[in-house]
């Protein structure tokens, strides 16, 4: 693992180089929104932002993806699939929470079932992280085995040290390669500065997520009805969540399309018979909580939330999943 100091100028040069050799995606402003998009001009790459509106999952698990086409030729049905571009792809400015979420995606799409569409995109991508010095009030990654300077899931991590200098920490060979031959060695002072920034960032995170160990025992509790009452069953929290991976398939003409789906929607569990086990709103909201804090943990050993806080910030009616999870055991004893 190498550490070096690069200047803002160096970073710009690196970005310019990457634009030529690879597909380069980085956060930029679109109106008032911060979204990842293809970089056309390194000047437009946004460095000071809490997090992008949409997580980077969209580049591995697109909101809409053509899986295959079917054709009928001489009475026979054939399938064809467009070949994906295999050019190297660099995703620049990924926040540590989002990088961690991709490791959860790996458990899902690179586990018992190998999803080739996902894996191809994963293999060709390099993740350049950007440490958070200014976490938001709604961030709570610290209580979920992540942190504002966490490296897990990244190929390289950049920390803004102020004064136009950046500490670059190589994590994987893929990541180190991008910064080869630039910058200078880091000194003691810079490493101390980085430590200070990390500690200061951690101190700013006050929200914590503490699900009760016996969450399962609350399944039938009237609590869920109470806390889900204001939920409007939209897809905001699930679509913007970096760890939500549910999808549906549909045919559009001859194309088989995979697209995001959400457990908040009532038709999500509607069966052909017309039966719908999650017709009631509380059962849908409870599903969201249990999938993250119970089922995923049971299946893969960890909670499927990285504490990015997007669902809290973007929910149109301010449903706060952390508050709901933290309070559920207390509420039970109260009633």
């Amino acid at each position: 693992m190498t550490e070096k100091i690069v200047s803002k100028e160096d970073l710009k040069k690196i970005l310019e180089g990457l634009m030529k050799t690879s597909e380069l995606l980085a956060p930029g402003k679109e109106g008032d929104l911060v979204l990842f998009k293809p970089v056309k001009n390194p000047e437009e790459v946004f460095f000071a932002y809490p997090n992008s509106l949409k997580p980077v999952k969209e580049f591995f698990f697109p909101p809409r993806e053509e899986l295959f086409k079917h054709e009928i030729r001489e009475g026979k049905v054939g399938l064809s699939s467009e070949h994906q571009e295999n050019r190297k792809r660099v995703i620049w400015g990924v926040r540590p929470c989002d990088a961690k979420s991709l490791l959860m995606f790996d458990k899902m799409f690179d586990g018992e079932y190998k999803d080739s569409y996902y894996l191809e995109k994963r293999a060709k991508s390099v993740l350049v992280g950007l440490a958070c010095n200014e976490p938001l009030d709604s961030c709570f990654c610290l209580s979920l085995n992540a942190g504002p300077h966490a490296k897990e899931g990244l190929d390289v991590l950049i920390t803004d040290l102020g004064d136009d200098s950046y500490l670059v920490e190589g994590i994987t060979a893929k990541g180190e390669e991008l910064f080869q031959g630039c910058g200078k060695e880091s000194g003691e002072g810079e490493r101390t500065r980085k430590k200070e920034l990390e500690e200061a960032a951690k101190k700013k995170i006050r929200k914590t997520c503490q699900p009760p160990p016996d969450l399962e025992s609350f399944f039938e509790d009237p609590y869920w009805e109470k806390v889900s009452r204001k939920c409007i069953s939209c897809g905001v929290c699930t679509y913007l969540c970096p760890t939500c991976f549910c999808f549906d398939l549909s045919y559009e003409g001859r194309d088989c399309i995979r697209f995001w789906d959400s457990c908040s929607f009532s038709p999500f569990t509607k069966m052909t018979s017309g039966e719908n086990p999650r017709r009631e709103k509380k059962t849908r909201y409870r599903q969201r909580v249990y999938h993250k804090f119970s089922y995923f943990k049971k299946n893969f050993g960890e909670i499927a939330c990285v504490g990015c806080g997007r669902c809290l910030r973007e929910c149109p009616v301010k449903v706060d999943i952390v508050e709901i999870v933290n309070q559920c055991s207390k509420d039970k004893t109260k009633d």
Binding site: S233, C234, G235, F259, W260, F265, P316
Partner: peptide
């Protein structure tokens, strides 16, 4: 083009 079909507009 930006719409993500979250249907928040309808639900709210």
């Amino acid at each position: 083009a930006r719409c993500i079909k979250c249907y928040a507009c309808r639900q709210v």
